[in-house]
Design a protein around this nucleic acid. Structure first.
Lengths: 376, 376
DNA sequence: TACTTCAATGCAAAGGTTTGCAGGTAGATC
DNA sequence: GATCTACCTGCAAACCTTTGCATTGAAGTA
């Protein structure tokens, strides 16, 4: 029932190879023939069967998107941007959800490998060595995790954490808690590292609470701990946890920001809707999705998977680009942070605060400039 | 480089057809042979090439998910549930975003048709006749829209609107506004119809404002109109608009619920996080995703697309199931609705309020019983 | 006129899999 | 011991497309 290249060939009185060329190498066919074939194809509603094409060209024109949790509001903007970018380049996108499960990630890469030209691994939870191994099966681009030798799209959460800590220290906070993210998260480690260093530099003490599930519940569950820890400010792994914490503190009767200041990470759309509005480190999620797709497709055109020559399939070397892109983050100051107990006093150790973060106009959708290539 | 059925055949010393049968018809192959083949396949890491398989069986084991706007928080839970359900049944899922654009919807169905066994059309914006036409090209299941002769998964927003209006009328509101959704939305029409009838029955007056884009901005932009309309309660097309309205009213200094009550639709996770917490009509989004996938796959097994018989491809009749499922909604009363100007007074026309909606324990994720089949 | 050149088209193999049919072997039955 | 019956396996065609090579014919050159 579906119309094939053969139907078009019959209708336009040419061989199927001519029809094929009309689409994939138009300059090789006589203009008159071309218009005739095109007309017939249009008439019959012919669309090349991409699967059949993939069988011989080795390129499916599909990519895979593996996501830890679609329902986590951090991801939809990334998915949307990636899908849009891919489709502009005539690629279709498989989306799969792993429920934050490393085993599911591996299984999905295997399952998708034959059907795609590459896979975007978003905030993967599996081990570095496994990712490396899988990258030999199918081209991979990793988002939100740094791996030597693999193309990565990163957000500079380290810088973000520094800004956040400096902001808090500048407000007079000295006892700060970090709500860690899930085990296996690169972002969480990075945050911890940078926040720890920044706290030391600012003469503040950092207490790490976690690991925690990266959800509202995860944040809510730590409210009690936060109060008990006696800190006056908290940096959370992400906005969702920060929002959960806001709820938890509210339930405990702890006022934000009067008693405790809270900072999130991501700047998801909800963070403007809480009361108080959340101070947070904005990450360029959409840009990350676009960039990752670009890198994957670039890689794909640089090193095609197979090339046919006279019937013999020639396997091409497995060299790969390994560019790593770091996208900038930005501290967005809203209403969940306020003066701490040391407000106004001279900070011990350091002299001045340096160029602090600016208060942002808060246009909702941060437009982020193209990222800086930090390695290649 | 990728390992094929031929490699496995060579390694295990059998013909490729035996390998094929080991996977797709195990009962036809000798148990000893089977284990040997399986072992070799495991060893080599063989995975059948689904595209090649699809070429001959006519079933791709993929489905398509066409979404108006992935970033709209209504959809991610639906996508997540659909993807999970599909993968349980060994299907992979293409996800595509149309940006609320009808033309993009059509193009996507065409583009995906050859690569999937069916498409889920979520809240489509195109015309009924076009949908019907497309359904002849590829099996379709429509979510959030009712079409005669096509399988649909609906949420009973009519009932939801009724509950909401009755709730508001019961609180003493007589001047109510409805913030309409986007043009072409079945849900919006349904809401308007049911809300209008319920308002009439309750002796209240309903003012329709719209159509509007189904976003926070869409709601925010109507705040001024709402105030000017002099209503004391508003039912919004969805939570996003309701939240935007909340913001807008706050900016205008209008207190909710003291001066104006607001009700949303969907019960997205944000609606528990606004201040005041949003009263809303909960729609069983995840259940809709699961159900829609089930219907699509059911349809697919009932009426396979092609069947081979000795080399001749036999086109099978195009009969289809047209079951329509209506899922129940539930009014969740939170803090954005309060007494209106007629509170306590006898309602004109009607005698009593009937069994009003109950205050819900608010467990976050409404578990909804299997839907009622209303037609087949 | 004879030869080369080039553009346009056809031919056929290949890609990985499924599946109807036919062949082969072994056990059971009489 | 011959015949029948299962069971298992191999053969080859088919799915739809791409592409290197061969073929054709016309235009250009000497």
């Amino acid at each position: 029932m579906p119309v094939t290249i053969r139907d078009v060939a019959r209708a336009s009185g040419v061989h199927i190879s001519t029809v094929s060329r009309t689409f994939s190498a138009p300059h090789l066919v006589n203009p008159e023939t071309r218009v005739r074939v095109l007309a017939c194809a249009e008439d019959l509603g012919y669309r090349p069967n991409r699967a059949a094409r993939a069988l011989i060209t080795g390129r499916t024109h599909n990519i895979g998107l593996i996501i830890a949790d679609i329902a986590n509001p951090f991801f939809p903007p990334l998915i949307k941007a990636a899908e849009s970018q891919a489709r502009h380049r005539d690629y279709h996108v498989f989306v799969a959800d792993t429920n934050e499960d490393a085993a599911a990630e591996e299984e999905l890469v295997h399952a998708l490998a034959k059907q795609v030209d590459g896979v975007l691994l978003c905030s993967p939870r599996m081990s570095n060595s496994l990712i490396e191994q899988l990258s030999r099966e199918v081209p991979l681009v990793v988002v939100n995790r740094q791996l030597a030798g693999l193309p990565c799209v990163l957000m500079d959460v380290g810088q973000g954490a520094r800004s956040a800590i400096e902001h808090l220290a500048g407000l007079g906070h000295r006892e700060i808690a970090l709500l860690g993210g899930p085990r296996g998260s690169w972002t969480s480690r990075e945050l911890r590292r940078a926040a720890g260093a920044a706290a030391r530099a600012a003469g503040a003490e950092l207490t790490v609470l976690g690991p925690n599930p990266p959800t509202e519940t995860g944040g809510l569950a730590q409210a009690e701990q936060v109060r008990r820890a006696g800190v006056t400010a908290v940096l959370a792994y992400n906005d969702l946890m920060a929002i959960g914490l806001l709820e938890g503190l509210d339930a405990l009767g702890v006022r934000v920001p009067q008693e405790v200041s809270v900072v999130g990470v991501d700047d998801i759309s909800l963070s403007r809707l809480t009361r108080p509005k959340l101070t947070t480190v904005a990450t360029p999620t959409a840009a990350a999705g676009r960039t990752a797709v670009d890198m994957l497709l670039q890689q794909d055109t640089d090193f095609p998977r197979t090339a046919r020559g006279g019937g013999a399939t020639v396997a091409v070397g497995v060299r790969r680009t390994t560019a790593q892109v770091m996208l900038q983050t930005e501290l967005v100051i809203r209403d969940s942070t306020g003066p701490g107990p040391y407000a106004g006093r001279e900070r011990p150790g350091t002299a001045a605060v340096g160029p602090g973060p600016h208060r942002r106009a808060d246009p909702g959708n941060p437009v982020v400039a193209a990222g800086d290539v930090v390695a290649s």
